[in-house]
């Protein structure tokens, strides 16, 4: 079962402020989901290292060439010096 602390921790590492309403109803909803995916535990664990990612050959990789044709311009929160203004760090 997801405890209040655990939910808080998940919200903190996910950087999401939960409303009071969400803090109240999420534990039960998330529990149900976790309970549902818990069935995966039945799977034998010796298969756990099988990964099914695609493969590509080294030769197909991008050549090291600079291409800046459509250089991006950010407009949001830009200072006169070209810096992006973000929230304070401390």
């Amino acid at each position: 079962m997801i405890s209040k602390d655990e939910l808080e921790y998940l919200a903190q590492i996910s950087k999401i402020n939960l409303s009071e309403d969400e803090a109240k109803k999420f534990p039960e909803q998330l529990d149900k989901t976790i309970e549902y995916i818990d069935i995966l535990e039945e799977l034998a664990s010796d298969d756990s290292n099988v990964l099914d990612l695609q493969e590509m050959k080294f030769d197909e990789l991008r050549d090291d060439v600079v291409r800046m044709s459509g250089a991006l311009r950010i407009t949001k929160n830009l200072t006169e010096d070209g810096f992006l203004r973000g929230p304070k760090m401390k």
Binding site: L7, I16, N17, E22, F26, T33, P87, K88, M89
Partner: peptide
């Protein structure tokens, strides 16, 4: 805001289902 509280305050604006899936 300090950056981390700013992020959390911005990101509370995801819809409920999205938030549930992020948390899961």
């Amino acid at each position: 805001y300090k950056w981390d509280t700013y992020f959390s305050n911005v990101r509370k604006n995801f819809g409920e289902e999205v938030k549930r899936r992020i948390l899961i």
